[in-house]
Nucleic acid binder design. Structure first.
Lengths: 209, 209, 209, 209
DNA sequence: AATGAATGAGGCTTCATTCAT
DNA sequence: CATGAATGAAGCCTCATTCAT
């Protein structure tokens, strides 16, 4: 049932992308060889080429997958009851979910790649814009958003929120490996919440986790 | 006098590092070949090996140079009359000075590299800590710092300030090439100032350029 | 009846060889992949291996098929009423029939292959010998053949005839694609006839097409 | 002296082309690996790429070298006292000189390549045209050329001469390796002379070797 | 001090061939 | 009989590094 006529191909793609993510996060795009990916996926090198035209296509597909993941998170965030909870969902997903450091290293590499690969740049810019628009929208429709400090407009608040999120993610790659994902998450949330509290003039210490 | 026994070597190192910076920013560390660097510097490949043990040593020296630059900026910032002006000096230097996008792409790559090269990670972490400590100190000794919003402590304020700075830098690599350095700088300052105003409960619109 | 136990296999072989001919003529033996052939034949790669042991076997079968075609043409030529008409049949078939340039490219490739593959060399030599013997025989039994210029013997005449035919075929692969098969044929026949006229001291301008 | 500042590069190119010729003749263009060439030349693979952009460039350079050789032969032929001697020089050079079978296999491969590589086709067509024009010219200025059999015009005579030469060359690749270069040459000349005698109505048996 | 020719390991990619379904 | 997913060896090419000059 799970191996119906169309799925194996999709499964393979996912399997390869999963392996690629591990490798990319560990070594970076351009220091990961196709052999690395195939070994991580437990398949032969040649097989990758049945599912991806070349190495760049794997990178592009990874970026695309990242986009879809972000969109899914955004959807989840939209359904949260309060603005605060939405932000926590988004923030947590953005840099802490799944494999902890893995994710961050990959995203930083993705931005590095974007700085020279226009195709990737377009995609990342698109992801970012969509996510920011989503948050801007959430803010607009929330009570807190309309009474923000210093009369900051929703899109300005969103801009600050995302800047800090990216900044935390970037710092994440510097943390020693010894720190657990939980610790990492806790420390980063602390900083983020400090900002939110400031932006929305609220007391949020006790709300979550 | 200028061509004494020790200086040419230092000049050469700087010449090579300058060329390397151009290449690294343009293509990234691992897609820049030694030949690229030698061509950019207008020298032969072999000569690079007289001043650097290998490619990794060039990258490390590069990172070290970045550290020294940041420290110099910090020194300048310390001498500014007000906290605000200090921040502007720091922020502008951090991501806008010199070649605009060039710098950002290099720093993002540096963080990406740090995520897998402990030596680089240590160095970058050190730079960051030094700079943050410097800003924390500046805040502590300033009037505004002691009356910050929500009773945020100096090091917490500093943390937010750097997170946003990194976040803006990261976003920088996505901007289309067409934007001028000045535009880039203006937009980023706008966001940063919005944060500072919030943090220090001040009106700063008209203070600077 | 047509799908008896043995026929489909033969059909398949022919189908595959037909596809192979198209590919070989277009790209050459060693730049044609098994996938190219299977795609051209509209079947799967694996199926080719049910009918041919490997790629070399396909090439060998191809050469064999070429041999059979030449023999068939020789048979037709033998039944022509005059020597001249025999030669025209042979010549036309040799390099112009079917797809025009396609054929030539294949034959040149076949000779190239023969220069390093003894099995192919034997086969091609055999084809050539058979054809030349056939023509020698035709000449011996014709009126013109016995009164040839300069007392050239039938086998010497045959040798010259075939040398020119091969030479024209070789030149054929250089002709720009734009020329039609008809034009090609006309030009080549012109040269060949000039030789025949010379060899057999005859006037043949008006005899044929 | 022989290794002056500019020559080594040229020597290397020649060395590589020499090795390539051996390999190409032995295995054909597309079955010769860059490693084959480097091994034959006694150098490393990478070094080839200092002198040629890629494998195709080696093939193109080989073709170009062939063109220059033919032109040199044509020049020599032009200086011969009689038409007959000119033809012998040309013919001998065309397919027998140097390494005997080596040459032929290479040329047949070159034509095969020309049938699908327009760049090579142009070059080969150019060589052929130049050579044929040269011979046409030789014929025009010779006594025999103006009294040719059947009123054949110089360019028609030239066309036949080259067709036979190509035809003999093509046949050459079928000859068993055991035959010596001298035997090969003798047999081929025999056929060619038979044609020339016919074309120019002359007795030439005893003139040459 | 400086050059750049030379090396060879290693990366990307293709393709003949096999085999489970 | 037929498919096409899978393998892995081998080919092309790049590039960090060395060394004779």
């Amino acid at each position: 049932m799970s191996s119906s006529s169309l799925e194996p191909a999709l499964d393979r793609r996912e399997q390869i992308l999963g392996a690629a993510m591990v490798c990319f996060a560990k070594r970076g795009f351009h220091q990961t060889s196709m052999h690395d990916i195939s070994a991580e996926a437990g398949i032969s090198v040649g097989l990758i080429y049945r599912y991806f035209e070349n190495k760049e296509a794997v990178i592009a597909a990874m970026a695309d997958r990242h986009k879809k993941e972000i969109q899914a998170v955004l959807e989840r965030a939209r359904r949260a009851p309060t603005l605060l909870e939405s932000l926590e969902i988004l923030f947590t997903a953005h840099c802490c979910e799944n494999s902890p450091k893995v994710q961050s290293a990959f995203v930083v590499d993705l931005y590095a790649e974007a700085s020279r690969n226009p195709q990737i740049a377009d995609l990342v810019r698109d992801v970012l814009q969509t996510a920011m628009d989503g948050v801007t929208d959430l803010i607009s429709r929330s009570e807190e958003g309309t009474t923000a400090a210093h009369d900051l407009k929703p899109h300005e608040l969103s801009e600050l929120i995302f800047a800090v999120a990216r900044g935390m993610l970037m710092r994440d790659v510097l943390q020693p490996q010894e720190m657990t994902a939980a610790e990492r998450r806790a420390r980063q949330l602390e900083v983020a919440r400090r900002l939110w509290r400031l932006l929305f003039q609220m007391e949020i210490e006790s709300v979550y986790a």
